[in-house]
Design a protein around this nucleic acid. Structure first.
Length: 609
DNA sequence: CCCCCCCC
């Protein structure tokens, strides 16, 4: 029944932010066309699900969000597809240049109905930029009001700015309300993180920069200063202190390069004002959303999370050379434990690695660390991650008490390698989760541009015997294939020839477990294990000389079960792309270690219940 | 205007 719906409601609701008060006073009756649950990204500061809905006025439809206090209406099926309701209160936010309607309260008119009319999408996109594209009568003065100092409706409805003043005039805006379409704002925020000054030099020029993460009750935002702004502001900003910040430019955040939870970011400019604020009420210190170390396996690789743990071990300072930039970087691995009975390796980089002082097993809270999946789960600091040693927070005190009383003598199940080369023959993969072969495939490991590592336990079902080895250079670590020529076997890389090649294994084997089978590629180390410590030279010699003896060697390799540490990576040759599983390590199953591992699992605190 | 976040 079309007359139940408020005609033209969607067009009006889609008007630019800053529209007249009349707009916010309207109580349109609309029909819900769909509901979609939006689950917060792992590591995001959001912790509750939200519902994205599509509403219709019978002529047009429009996307909106339900405020979380209305979630129960969907979950209890008080509103369903085609329900009709009157929106009693709403607000809107700007998200990436788009306007997002948020329904704050509604009155259900009819729970069950059928679809009314044949609504179409609203045509012109309506960021404030697009205001001119809207019919004049629907957007009176809207484009100018967005440029005034007036807080946006979102801030009015959800976060009324406290009428705190500075110099008797400025209103404090919540970080949440900042957008590029607004000039005269001022935020009051704590610096939760300040970077070092970095310099760059590329085709476009060179310069220096620094960045901070600013935080208030409503959210966080990254701010960056270049060149002059470094001189002006770098020393002024102190980690942990609170500042009024205004007149910085607001840009769309390039999310790819930042893990700060905000669609926008700030650039500090010549006239940017920064003034320390000594009234720090209502400006939170670092907000943590800790994940148990034992739950890290549930967190997606490459996401960002907060972790608190006792530093059980501090690794040596090491150095790596980045494959992409060729630069050397210092690193140091810490082993963290918590009450979940698990441990995890966390890597510090650069200055943080160098200056880390190995105190007496402190509790450290980490914010915004990256989750990796090398041999299970690992953690790694970003430049924007922060750590607090022995923070004065309840979680830390509880951990300290537990660890000193009980945790210190406990065994931990590793989410990842310990970094310092662990004891058993499983080495650093000692306690990584053993994945069924099918799970490796189902998880599409190796499908991204970066390799994935996994551990599986499988039995050799088949071995390709045609090319079991290749003639290689003798030079230690060269391993390059050599070609027979007039002066012997020549290595292009080493620019020298050998009288005889040194054969190295390249084994292609099918390994199976209860779940399925996969073809794995192994190199010399794997071949030596599979062929009972025989060198490739020996086996090639037998193969050339005595078929029966060679078949016997192959026979004895079959049906044996190993733990395979594998690397999955997509490779393309001849226009076809497939995932290659290469064996990084092959380990005979140690029943003694397996027994100890299982006993340890049983001792885990959360299994004892 | 940076933008790398690394290695086994």
């Amino acid at each position: 029944m079309a007359h139940q719906l408020t005609g033209g409601a969607c067009i009006r609701l889609n008007e630019p932010i800053g529209g007249d008060d009349e707009l916010f006073n309207m109580r349109p009756t609309v029909q819900f066309l769909s509901f979609k649950k939006v689950v917060p990204a792992p590591g995001s500061s959001a912790t509750v699900d939200r519902y994205r809905v599509i509403i219709s006025d019978g002529e047009h439809f429009l996307q909106a969000m339900l405020a979380t206090q209305l979630n129960h209406l969907v979950e209890d099926e008080k509103i369903t597809k085609h329900s009709i309701a009157t929106i009693e209160k709403f607000t809107c936010n700007l998200v990436q240049d788009k306007r997002l309607l948020i329904i704050l309260s509604l009155q259900i008119v009819a729970k069950d109905s059928s679809k009314i009319g044949n609504p179409t999408p609203i045509q012109s996109p309506s960021g404030p930029n697009a205001a001119g594209a809207l019919p004049q009568k629907t957007a009176p003065a809207a484009s100018t009001s967005t440029m005034t100092a007036r807080p946006p409706p979102a801030a009015l409805a959800q976060q009324p700015p406290r009428q705190q003043t500075r110099n008797g005039r400025n209103t404090v805006y919540p970080i949440e309300s900042l957008s590029p379409y607004q000039n005269h704002w001022m935020i009051k925020a704590r610096v939760s993180q300040k970077s070092d000054v970095k310099t760059w030099s590329n085709q476009r020029g060179e310069g220096k920069l620094f960045s901070v993460t600013l935080m208030d009750e409503t959210g966080e935002i990254k701010g960056t200063g270049f060149n002059n702004a470094v001189d002006e502001l770098y020393d002024k900003f102190q980690e942990g202190k609170v500042y009024f910040v205004s007149k910085a430019r607001v840009n769309l955040a390039k999310k790819k390069f930042s893990n700060v939870q905000n669609e926008y970011e700030l650039t500090f400019e010549r006239n940017t004002e920064v003034e320390e604020c000594h009234d720090v009420t209502n400006v939170p210190t670092v907000r943590y959303n800790f994940v148990d170390i034992g739950k890290l396996s549930e967190i997606t690789k490459d996401s960002v999370c907060d972790v608190i743990g006792v530093v059980k071990d501090v690794g040596q300072l090491g150095e790596i050379t980045s494959k992409t930039t060729n630069k050397t970087v210092s690193k140091r691995d810490l082993t963290l434990v918590d009450r979940s009975g698990f441990s995890v390796r966390l890597t510090l980089w650069g200055k943080q690695a160098e200056t880390f002082v190995a105190e007496d097993q402190p509790v450290i809270a980490f914010k915004g660390v990256k989750v990796g999946d090398f041999g299970g789960r690992t953690l790694s600091m970003f430049s924007s991650s922060t750590m607090q040693v022995n923070p004065d927070i309840p979680d830390a005190h509880a951990l300290r008490g537990w660890f000193d009383a009980a945790g210190v003598d406990q065994n931990y199940q590793a989410q990842s390698s310990s970094g310092g080369g662990g004891g058993g023959s499983y080495g650093q993969f000692e306690r990584a989760e053993i994945l069924p072969v099918n799970t490796v495939k189902e998880r599409e490991m190796g499908m991204s541009d970066k390799p994935d590592f996994f551990l599986c336990r499988a039995t050799i079902m088949h071995l390709k015997t045609e090319n079991i080895a290749y003639p290689a250079c003798h030079t230690d670590g060269c391993n390059k294939k050599v070609i027979e020529g007039h002066d012997g076997w020549r290595c292009e890389r080493c620019d020298r020839s050998w009288e005889k090649p040194q054969y190295r294994y390249i084994v292609s084997l099918a390994a199976a477990d209860y779940s399925g089978q996969a073809w794995l590629q192994g190199f010399n180390d794997a071949g030596q294990v599979i062929f009972d410590s025989k060198s490739a030279d020996e086996v090639v010699e037998v193969k050339d000389r005595d078929d029966v003896a060679f078949n016997k060697i192959v026979e004895q390799a079959m049906g044996k079960t190993y733990n395979f540490v594998c690397r999955a990576k997509q490779e393309t040759f001849n226009d076809s792309t497939r995932i290659r599983y290469s064996i990084q390590r092959i380990l005979p199953v140690s029943y003694k270690e397996e027994g100890a591992y299982l006993a340890n699992l049983l001792r885990r605190s959360d299994w004892a219940r």
